[in-house]
Design a binder for these strands. Structure first.
Lengths: 252, 252
DNA sequence: TCAATTTTGTTATTTTTATAACATCTGTTG
DNA sequence: CAACAGATGTTATAAAAATAACAAAATTGA
C-alpha cells in the first residue's frame, strides 16, 4: 500500500531521485547518465529505468539527460505548487472557451497553470490581442506570431510568476477587453471565487470590470475550495468553463 | 580572400548550413546528426566538423544537435539584427559598471543586447532591485534569486523584445532609481545619444529624469552613429562606460 | 589553366551507449 | 518469519556514435 504523500516529502526513492535530477538538470542544462548514477549512488541502469517513467519531464539524448522541450519552456516559471495536476481537465476547460473567440478581439488572460492551455489552443491563423500579467502566459504569447502581447508590469512575484502594480493601477484603462478569462484557486457557492493574495484579487477585479464578457475557467478540483482573497461572486461571471464544457453562470 | 558579407547572404556554404541548422534546432529542440546530414545533403562527418566551429551556438549530445545553454536562453528574444556583434566589447563596458553597484540599490536597466551582460556580471550575493522593460533582461533577472524584478509593462515590440506603455506613463513614479544604465543605438557629439523609435526615447527620458546617477553604456562601434530618435545629450550623463572603461561624461 | 589549399567524403577502428536477461536485494504482508 | 512483489544491480551482447586517416572533389589565386 502506498503511503499518503506529505508535502515536500517524496513518497518513493524513485521520486526523490527524479526531483534531485530535475533540479540538477535545470541548473546545468544536462547531466550525463554516468554522473547522475554516481551522484545518486545507484547504477546507470536504474537511472535509465527512472527516465523511462518520466518522459514528460526528461529526454534522453545519447547518454545525456536533458529537460524535455515542454519542461524547458516552463522551467523558469514553474509555479510553486501542483503545476502538473489535472492537466487534462484544465486543457478541456480551456478548449471549451475557444469557440467564444472571434478574430481581432482583445482578451484578458489571468495567471496560473490553467490558462496557458488556452493560449496553446488558439488557432494559428486567428489574430488576437492578449493582455496578461503573468510571465508564463507572456512567454507563450510571444511565441505565437498571430498574437499581440500586452503585459501589465509591476513587481515580480515568483510563486505565481506574475507582476503586480506598485501602486493602484490605471494601466488597464487604455484597453477595451472583449473577453476576460479568469482563473481561481477556489470556487465556493456562498463565499465566492477566491485567490491567494489580495493584490491579485484587486487586479482581477479591475480586469473584470473593464470586460464585456467574463468567463471563469476552473476545473472541478477547484470547486468547494476556499482561499483568503475573494474577488468575485459566481453570478459576476457570464459563463463558467470546466472540463464538462461551457455553462452560463448561475443567477444570484 | 573572403568576400565582403552581404546582409542575409551567408558568405560560405558552411555558414549557410549553420544558419539553417540553427533555425531547425530552435524550432524542433534538437535534430539528429543523421537527419541534419540528409537535410543539408552532406555527410555526417561534415556536420560534425561544422559543429566543432560553432560551440557557442550548438552543443553535441550523443548524436543529437542541441542549442547551447546560452543560445537556449536567448532564443525567443533574439533581437532582429546583430545580436552577437561586439560581444566582448559590450561585456567589457558592462564590467566597468559593476564597481558602481552597492547592495540594496535600485537599477534601471535599458533594453538591447549590451546590458544583458551587466545582469550576468552582477555578483550572486548582491541583493538589488532591477527595473526594466525588455523581456530578454527580465528573463535573465528572473533566474538570479538575489535580484528583485520590476518590469514596466505595455505593448510588446518584437524587434527590441521590449514593452512600451500604451499611454504616457506614470508607472516609474513609484520607484526611486539609484543608477540608470542606458544603452543607445548611436552616440554622436553634436546630435546626441539616439535610439530607433520615439516611444523608446520617451521611456528612456523618463527613466533618466528619475535617476540619481546616469550611466551610458556603449561600445565604440556606436560612436559616430546617428539614429532618428534623440533622447539625451552626452552631457546629460554622469558617466560613460565603454570597453575602455568608465569615464566622466564631457561637460556641455 | 594549373597548382595549392581547403572542403568534403569514405572507410575502418575504437569507444560509448542501449538493451535484454537474469541474479540479487529490499521491503511488505499475512 | 516466510513468501512475495517490486526495485535494483550485473553481465553479456547488440547497436550507435566518435575519431582518425586517407582519398576525392571543389575553390582559389596566380
Amino acid at each position: 500500500m502506498r503511503q499518503p504523500e506529505h508535502r515536500g516529502t517524496p513518497a518513493t526513492r524513485k521520486e526523490a531521485r527524479l526531483l534531485l535530477l530535475k533540479d540538477t538538470v535545470e541548473r546545468n542544462g544536462s547531466i550525463h547518465i554516468r554522473d547522475a548514477a554516481e551522484l545518486l549512488d545507484v547504477s546507470e541502469m536504474t537511472i535509465r529505468r527512472d527516465m523511462r517513467e518520466a518522459p514528460e519531464t526528461f529526454q534522453f539524448l545519447g547518454g545525456h539527460i536533458v529537460l524535455s522541450q515542454e519542461a524547458q519552456r516552463r522551467a523558469p516559471y514553474e509555479l510553486a505548487q501542483a503545476a502538473e495536476l489535472n492537466e487534462a481537465a484544465k486543457r478541456a476547460a480551456c478548449a471549451a472557451c475557444v469557440p467564444l473567440l472571434m478574430p481581432e478581439e482583445t482578451l484578458f488572460v489571468d495567471c496560473g497553470t490553467t490558462l496557458p492551455h488556452l493560449i496553446d489552443l488558439i488557432p494559428d491563423d486567428m489574430e488576437l490581442t492578449i493582455i496578461c500579467y503573468a510571465l508564463n502566459i507572456a512567454d507563450m504569447v510571444v511565441r505565437k506570431p498571430n498574437l499581440q502581447l500586452v503585459l501589465l508590469g509591476g513587481v515580480y512575484h515568483a510563486p505565481t510568476a506574475s507582476f503586480y502594480p506598485a501602486q493602484d493601477d490605471a494601466t488597464l484603462d487604455a484597453y477595451a477587453i472583449n473577453h476576460a478569462f479568469m482563473s481561481a484557486a477556489g470556487v465556493e457557492e456562498s463565499l465566492g471565487v477566491t485567490c491567494t493574495t489580495f493584490r491579485e484579487a484587486g487586479l482581477k477585479q479591475t480586469a473584470m470590470a473593464r470586460a464585456q464578457n467574463r468567463i471563469l475557467v476552473a476545473d472541478q478540483s477547484k470547486f468547494g475550495v476556499v482561499n483568503p482573497a475573494s474577488f468575485a461572486r459566481l453570478s459576476d461571471f457570464d459563463r463558467i468553463a470546466t472540463e464538462a464544457g461551457l455553462q452560463p453562470a448561475p443567477a444570484d
